[in-house]
């Protein structure tokens, strides 16, 4: 992704900010899947055949 010759403080800061953005995006996606599952299945999540 990044060019080693261009590595510098600005690049490290930008990469860190991008990584945080990806982490937040993934966290939001996980929460959305969880919420959709609960809404669609409701109490059936607990009362399911084992």
């Amino acid at each position: 992704m990044s060019d080693p010759n261009l590595e510098g403080e600005d690049f490290r800061k930008a990469r860190r900010a991008r990584n945080i953005a990806i982490a937040l995006g993934l966290a939001v996606f996980v929460i959305l899947v969880y919420a959709v599952t609960i809404v669609n299945l409701g109490s059936d999540v607990i009362h399911r055949p084992l």
């Binding site: 060019d3 930008a14 900010a17 991008r18 953005a21």
Partner: peptide, 13 residues
Amino acid sequence: TSVRAPARWQDFL
């Protein structure tokens, strides 16, 4: 094709 500046998350947005 060369990256001249660090890609910020705002660029992807």
